[in-house]
């Protein structure tokens, strides 16, 4: 299990996360939702070790305090960062091959074959998003943290992505931050975290998508 306990993060004296506890088990998926500025991305960054935080993060019972991000990656935690972050001067192929075989990515998204020699900096938003997603899943993570993976994607690619997440879920724990396609994502998730102002306000165990959406609608407009 990937467990973050009582996580606190402050930037320049401003408290962004306040005692957040969050966990994901292998074989399950969790959805993290909340308005902008609620601390969702910061929570993922704290788990990955790219921001300083108070609290405890453990993976499969092993506490990973003070571990730099590259060592967390080697323990199987992978973050697909937000804002379609790619290495802009490298080709699509190079961007993906840092974590696995390019042909495996082409199996998920066939259009990557035509884009392989193009520099990632000139791709459209949707194209960048499939590069970011492919790079994350190809490293065969034990725990996969996806930050806004569905932004700017076509319906077809959203479906491909969701089916890939379902497939990966059999072996890995997956946590997703999303503002888009919540109805579809809830279908494949087991738990829903609702965050507001740097705190987890509600944890909803998903029995059915309708029930989860109904509960969530009390807190936000979907």
């Amino acid at each position: 299990m990937l467990m973050a306990e009582n996580i606190g993060v402050a930037f320049n004296g401003l408290q962004v996360l306040r005692g957040v506890t969050f966990s994901v088990e292998r074989g399950t998926a969790v959805l993290v939702v909340g308005p902008n500025g609620s601390g969702k991305s910061t929570l993922f960054r704290a788990v990955m070790g790219t921001v300083k935080y108070r609290g405890k993060v453990s993976v499969d019972g092993k506490v990973i305090e003070g571990m730099p991000p590259h060592r967390r990656f080697r323990l199987g935690i992978v973050l697909a960062p937000e804002k379609m972050r790619v290495a802009e001067n490298l080709t699509v192929r190079e961007n993906i091959e840092i974590s696995g075989r390019f042909r495996d990515a082409v199996r998920i998204f066939p259009e990557l074959e035509h884009l392989k020699n193009r520099k990632a900096g000139v791709l459209s938003g949707g194209e960048r998003q499939i590069v970011v997603f492919s790079r994350a899943v190809l490293s065969d993570p034990s725990y996969l943290l996806l930050d806004e993976p569905f932004q700017a994607l076509s319906d077809e690619n959203v479906e491909r992505m969701i089916s890939e997440i379902e497939r990966r879920k059999r072996r890995a724990g997956i946590a997703i931050i999303s503002h888009d396609r919540i109805e579809d994502v809830v279908e494949i998730c087991d738990t829903l975290y609702f965050m507001l102002s740097g705190r987890v306000r509600r944890v909803i165990e998903i029995e059915s998508a309708e029930q989860a959406i109904k509960k969530l609608e009390k807190y936000m407009i979907l």
């Binding site: 790219t50 730099p68 991000p69 590259h70 990656f73 992978v78 973050l79 790619v86 290495a87 802009e88």
Partner: peptide
């Protein structure tokens, strides 16, 4: 290209 991205993908 990007130190943080490199770290995220296991590079020391």
């Amino acid at each position: 290209e990007d130190h943080e991205l490199a770290e995220l993908y296991g590079i020391n």
